[in-house]
Design a protein around this nucleic acid. Structure first.
Lengths: 326, 326
DNA sequence: ATCAATACATGAACAGTATTCATCTAATGC
DNA sequence: GCATTAGATGAATACTGTTCATGTATTGAT
């Protein structure tokens, strides 16, 4: 018969059972997952194959059953071992980051905040901001994590990145959104394109255009969601290019058009080789936010950086124009 | 000058530096955070105070700087140590769960899935479902985690619970939503209440009512979001009761009214002491989902349970009425 | 089929680490 | 001022993990 255990306590201070596996066993799990074989994993960990074999045997002895199936001379993850490996893949990097951060924090006194941009791999504003950062808050160092673009929220929650700049806020629990500035989605076309002279674009204009987009995973890409899809229009040909600068280059060479954020296009507009056109009569606005973990929302360097960014953008808008360029 | 490090690689297979801290050091961090003093932590870990003191000293030696400030004869977490402790508090339970699950999975062959309900602490349907589960899939055992009601998404992501039953789907990355059944929000009043005879309720009807709600953290409860707030009506008094059965009891005793899901009210309606009235002419529908981690979305017992629940509810609806009761 | 190479397992000796026991120091409270 | 509490320290001991040398089974090539 099925039994129900009801746990009312939020925190089990001590579950009675101690940890069976050592950190080295988890490290081993990750290494084997990454490298495939015991031998490679062993050399990556800087120990002999024999040692790792012993280590694996010990782990399985402690757990009471095999983590891997021995298929011929190969190790294959046992079904139950999959979850263990996934845990290892999550936990080991988290621990390494924590240690690394701690040592940074205690030696330098200057702390590194990992930073990523959720959409458009577009960093033309960074040098200027960093100059500002360096002048006002030298205690914070930036580490740019380009790979955080793929799945920013997960990367943020898992700690691979500390601050993400994202178009739109996040309702995800555990994430706090700090507003940065208001932006606008625009159609980007070559300067001499037949659409370049229009006051604004309607979805039908895109019917016969080659369309370039920056993301295939389309964290429901807003331009598609908000402009193209509602109209039922299907653009002619869609090409995926992941870097904004490359998209702009392609557009200016006549390979197609794209919908990007006016901020992302940024300085490229000044070159005069491309034009940016509002979408619809009113235009489609887009609010940028800095996302931080809720646990970092106060008193952390992450939060500090987010606030500095917000202040910097606010000042940009105040002194120049409604869209902060570099 | 500020420097930028750009990391392009998604996975750093091996960051060159190995782990400095042992799992016991992280365990120690968690124990000290939980218990406050070295002495208590030591006894909780089943070792002497001396051993833990050595252990702490070793951890600090490896990291190169102190985790705690010694204030008098007391240990106080150093600023940089806070993040370490937080990591420990997250990671240690995750590892314990993983180990526990693995041993469950490999010994019993029957696996425990932790289950929670995101809103309304309401489990009248559970015994019947468990009977069904036991008959069809005895390999899956249920563990009911009542505390997951508070912040279901975080609990799910962190692994404190494996499946959450929630009203509405979740867009959170890393979470997959599996539709269960359609429900309806209703106003629950005592059977002889002056509103009980109405065909349906409008927001203004609530103006002079004492209003009971089920959640104090108020993830601004949907009933509020969808019915009360749009109308600008502010109900008379809001009393917080966290358990649905208690709310129903209070309502039937004339302490107030509440908006709940028809499913949550469930069998209580049959008693005849309360009445449930649709909200607005069309009623306000509510879709229930089973939420699982995306990493568990296929081939895991969590996913299996979610599918079983969906199938069970589908069958309930087919054979009885559009709302699955027990 | 045979032989070499590959991938992992095993046993004994050794090295390194963690734990205990006994003792010590410095705050704190009565 | 004296007992008490919280933690630190040093030396001896017990334990755990590593290496080295070697073994076994599988795979692929000749």
């Amino acid at each position: 018969m099925n039994t129900v255990h009801v746990l009312m306590a939020d925190v089990r201070v001590n579950c009675g059972c101690f940890m069976r596996l050592d950190i080295r066993h988890w490290e081993m799990l990750k290494a084997i997952a990454d490298l495939g074989t015991l031998k490679n994993a062993a050399s990556a960990l800087g120990i002999t194959q024999s040692a790792l074999s012993h280590r694996l045997a010990e782990a399985e002895r402690r757990l009471g059953s095999p983590l891997f199936d021995r298929e011929g001379r190969q190790l294959r993850l046992a079904k139950a071992g999959i979850a263990m490996t996934q845990t290892a893949l999550q936990v080991i990097p988290a621990l390494q980051r924590a240690e690394h951060d701690f040592m940074q924090a205690s030696t330098n006194a200057a702390s590194v905040v990992r930073f990523g941009v959720a959409a458009y791999s577009c960093y033309h504003w960074l040098p200027v901001f960093m100059k500002h950062l360096d002048a006002t808050t030298p205690a914070i160092q930036l580490e740019l994590v380009a790979s955080a673009t793929q799945n920013p929220i997960m990367n943020l929650l898992e700690g691979a990145v500390d601050v993400v700049m994202a178009p739109g806020l996040s309702e995800t629990p555990g994430i706090k959104s700090i507003p940065l500035f208001q932006d606008e989605l625009v159609l980007v076309v070559p300067a001499h394109h037949h659409l370049a002279s229009k006051a604004y674009i309607v979805a039908e204009d895109l019917l016969s255009e080659d369309y370039l987009t920056y993301s295939k995973t389309a964290q429901p890409g807003f331009e598609y969601e908000r402009f193209i899809r509602p109209s039922g229009v299907v653009p002619h040909l869609v090409t995926v290019v992941e870097v904004t600068d490359a998209i702009i280059e392609l557009i200016s060479s006549g390979f197609g058009v794209s919908i990007l954020s006016r901020w992302a296009v940024g300085s490229a507009l000044k070159g005069g080789k491309i034009a940016a056109l509002p979408l619809g009569k009113q235009g489609l606005s887009l609010d940028w936010y800095a996302l931080v973990r809720a646990s970092d929302a106060t008193q952390s360097h992450s939060a500090k950086l987010a606030q500095l960014m917000a202040a910097w953008y606010a000042q940009k808008i105040g002194t120049t124009n409604p869209l902060p360029h570099d």
